[in-house]
Design a protein around this nucleic acid. Structure first.
Lengths: 187, 187
DNA sequence: CAAGTTTGATAGACAGTGTCTACAAGGTGA
DNA sequence: TCACCTTGTAGACACTGTCTATCAAACTTG
């Protein structure tokens, strides 16, 4: 039952947006009474936290499916995968970083996001190990570089989903902007 | 009256968070009945859009107060100002990019954000005019570079406010991460 | 000046939401 | 068997945004 609620919540999320994921809506979609979910979750925040945790897990799966190659190739593929994940699953991506909908103290969610970051930081570190003549100062911690690069990708996805970049007389594609970002960090 | 509602909404936003900005709460704080705001705004989205527009205006004001100096100095100062604005006004920053709370079709909001972007793109362009030996490929449109850099700053602020970067055994300061970002783009 | 009209605020209602509580059905273990 | 505990149900409460009827004040206009 718990799993069924999580599944229906995830389904509702992906095809109706993050605002549509309501406890009563999930209950109705699962064919139970409106109070039933509260027997398995302390509240909406906990249920959504589990869903968001699944999102981070899916993201990590994408990371584990990176093709073999040089560290540089794997890193750039990971960057593309991150942005692609965000643009492909906008509702899930939004939920994953909505602190008001998820419970920040949920240990599963915190560790899942932490694992994703560590994985990405490892990719960055391995790349910097090979390319010592990096333009980025050699002394800085790889995890700091990873945080900066991750933030760049994250902001790109977020701004793109926001839609504000497509305004006025300027409509870049996310790929072209991503290319500039990767060029700045790795070019 | 309209202005009073906007002011109380802004005040409520900055010191109670974005979730606390409710139509009824604004009305109560302004000392009017719960339905009064609907006489001046078509709904919550329009009121919040006006507040968000003020946010973009404030951001632009910060930009106009940049100290004189080389284009490079002005650009880096603008980058610092952007992140500083976000971290100083987290609720306003969140509202400005919450498409579900604001009305994307509001012309004032769209133009305000567009003006901010254009201003930033101008800074980037002027810097690239001077430093022709830029590491970033010379052929690419300055606005594309501006979008990429803006996204990097935006993601940095967003991830920082999210708080996920402070997890595990790694707690960088936003300044250090920003330094890495600026080093990647301008270093 | 006075009558009509428009504006603006009010209070009530309605459909939603999350969450709490009382209650009933069914399985479990002493 | 019987107490107990889990799990689903239904109702209630306090919120929310929005709609509508009402009503007073102000403004317009003949």
């Amino acid at each position: 039952m718990r799993q069924r609620l999580i599944s229906t919540a995830t389904a509702l999320l992906t095809d109706a947006g993050v605002e549509a994921v309501t406890l009563r809506g999930i209950a109705k979609a699962a064919g139970v009474s409106h109070g039933a979910p509260l027997r398995h979750f302390t509240g909406r925040a906990e249920l959504l936290s589990v869903v968001a945790t699944r999102g981070f897990t899916q993201l990590l799966e994408r990371g584990s499916q990176l093709p073999d190659g040089t560290p540089r190739e794997r890193l750039t593929a990971a960057c593309h995968a991150y942005v692609d994940f965000a643009l492909s699953n906008p509702a899930m991506f939004e939920l994953m970083f909505r602190r008001d909908l998820t419970d920040p103290d949920e240990p599963g969610l915190a560790s899942a996001s932490s694992i994703v970051f560590d994985f990405f930081a490892t990719l960055v570190h391995e790349d910097r190990e090979v390319a010592k003549d990096e333009r980025l100062r050699e002394g800085t911690d790889s995890r700091l570089v990873a945080a900066s690069l991750w933030a760049a990708l994250h902001g790109l996805a977020q701004l793109w989903l926001w839609g504000g970049l497509a305004g006025a007389s300027f409509a870049p594609s996310p790929e072209s902007a991503l290319a500039v970002t990767l060029d700045a960090y790795l070019g």
